[in-house]
Lab assay of single mutants.
Amino acid sequence: ATNIVSKVKWYNSTKNFGFIEQDNGGKDVFVHKSAVDAAGLHSLEEGQDVIFDLEEKQGKAYAVNLRIK
């Protein structure tokens, strides 16, 4: 899926990962520091509106092509 609009559930800049809620009630989506860095960001804030693409690797959903709404 591409261009999903949602909100950051939480992000831990010390552990370099977090999760984004899915508005459709699906499972929370993992977001890694590499996606945050690629977006030119230093961190994410809880409740922040984001747009991302969903990529599945080894049966897990990852946020990629992250951008701020």
Results as ranks from 00 to 15, higher is better:
D37K: 14
Y11F: 09
A63E: 03
E21H: 14
F30P: 01
G26P: 08
K9D: 00
E56P: 04
F52E: 00
G25W: 09
L44V: 04
Y11D: 01
I68C: 08
F17C: 04
Y11N: 00
L66C: 03
V29Y: 12
F19I: 04
I20W: 00
V5W: 11
R67M: 05
K9G: 02
T2S: 11
R67F: 05
G47T: 03
K33E: 03
A38Q: 10
E55W: 13
V29F: 10
K33Y: 08
Y11S: 00
N24D: 11
D37Y: 15
D28F: 05
D37P: 02
D28W: 06
D37Q: 14
K9V: 05
N3L: 06
D28N: 08
I4T: 06
A63M: 02
V31Y: 02
K69Y: 14
N24F: 11
H42D: 12
V29W: 08
V31W: 02
A1H: 13
G40Y: 06
A63D: 03
V64Y: 05
I4N: 07
K15P: 00
V29L: 06
E21R: 15
F30M: 04
A39V: 06
A63I: 04
K60E: 06
W10A: 02
K33I: 06
D28Y: 05
K9R: 10
S6F: 06
K9A: 04
F19G: 01
I51H: 05
A35L: 03
V31D: 00
I68D: 06
K15L: 15
V8N: 00
L66T: 00
L54K: 08
F30G: 00
N3F: 07
I68T: 11
I20E: 02
K15S: 07
V50I: 14
E45P: 07
N16I: 03
G25T: 08
V5Q: 12
D28A: 06
K60I: 08
D28R: 04
V29Q: 01
S43T: 14
Q58K: 12
F30A: 02
K60Y: 11
W10L: 03
L41D: 02
D53G: 03
S6D: 02
L66W: 00
S34L: 11
V5E: 11
I4F: 07
D49Y: 15
V64K: 09
V50K: 00
K27D: 09
D37A: 14
N16D: 04
F30D: 00
A61I: 15
K15C: 10
N65A: 04
T2A: 10
N12C: 11
N65M: 04
L54N: 02
V8E: 00
F19M: 05
R67V: 07
K7I: 07
N65E: 03
Q48Y: 06
A63F: 02
K27I: 09
A63K: 02
S43M: 11
S43D: 11
E56W: 15
G47L: 04
V5K: 12
G18M: 02
F19A: 02
H32K: 03
V29H: 08
D49E: 15
A1T: 13
Q58L: 12
A35I: 07
S43L: 11
R67A: 05
D23P: 15
N24V: 10
I51G: 04
V5I: 12
I4H: 07
W10E: 00
